[in-house]
């Protein structure tokens, strides 16, 4: 059984191929370059390298966000179309969940996050329980400062994982002090092999109904809803 995993939800472009429970190939870059141009060539090249044809794929796994709206849609469109065309199951995995795999052996809460500008982040709280990754606090889009104050109140260690760690490092250390654990560079990037692994064990989705995990309404829609409420 071959699984193809695709992640273009953030700056990392990741593709991996899982055979049974083994990763047989992986392509990953962490560059501010166009995912739309590079994704299919990356898939094509990797599949050629490991000698797998599209027909041999039995499942597609995709990182469904949060992250860059455009990036998330590039990955999801490609994954959905591949799954539909090939008639194989698809699984969408939260991009935060994939990132939490980098803290596989951390004994307490893990806080993966992506910067969402203007002091906001997309985040949630995860914890490993044996081999299971559990969601401790729902994923949301909120102000980093408020979130950190909430975390600090628990008086427990938290592992912070984020490609945007440098934007928030100072504030994390200020509010969390010694409770904050921040690892070295490479641990802050989602790995497509972890995505494949996570997706291999999850329930599949209906291909037509699989939608991005934006965690935030489009601005125009939010404004429109606000104006509707005000006029009532």
């Amino acid at each position: 059984m071959y699984i193809l995993a695709i992640d273009t939800s953030n700056q990392v472009l990741g593709v991996s191929i899982l055979k049974e429970n083994e990763i047989i190939g992986e392509f990953i870059t962490n560059l501010p370059k166009n995912h739309s141009v590079r994704l299919m060539p990356a898939i094509e090249r990797l599949m050629k390298e490991v000698n797998v044809t599209p027909k041999q794929l039995e499942r597609i796994v995709v990182a469904k966000g949060p992250g860059s709206y455009t990036g998330v849609r590039i990955g999801l469109t490609t994954a959905k179309t591949l799954a539909w065309t090939l008639g194989i199951p698809i699984v969408g995995v939260s991009s935060l969940q994939v990132l939490a795999y980098q803290g596989r052996f951390f004994p307490a809460s893990i806080c993966p996050f992506f910067d969402a500008r203007r002091g906001l982040v997309f985040t949630g709280l995860y914890q490993w329980n044996g081999t299971a990754l559990e969601l401790v606090a729902d994923e949301k889009n909120l102000e980093m400062e408020a979130w950190l104050i909430e975390l600090a109140e628990k008086k427990e260690q938290v592992l912070f994982l984020s490609p945007d760690i440098d934007i928030h490092r100072e504030q994390i250390q200020k509010i969390m002090g010694n409770l904050a654990v921040i690892p070295e560079g490479p641990f802050h990037y989602a790995n497509p092999s972890h995505l494949a692994l996570a997706g291999s064990q999850m329930d599949t989705a209906n291909v037509h109904q699989l939608t991005p995990n934006y965690l935030r309404m489009a601005e125009a829609e939010a404004n429109w809803l606000k104006s509707q409420k005000e006029s009532k």
Partner: peptide
């Protein structure tokens, strides 16, 4: 651009999957 990207990426995936 964001709208075009959906069609373009779907088309590429189709072309690749079915050769």
């Amino acid at each position: 651009v964001g709208a075009l990207l959906i069609g373009v990426n779907a088309a590429k995936a189709l072309a690749f999957a079915k050769g």
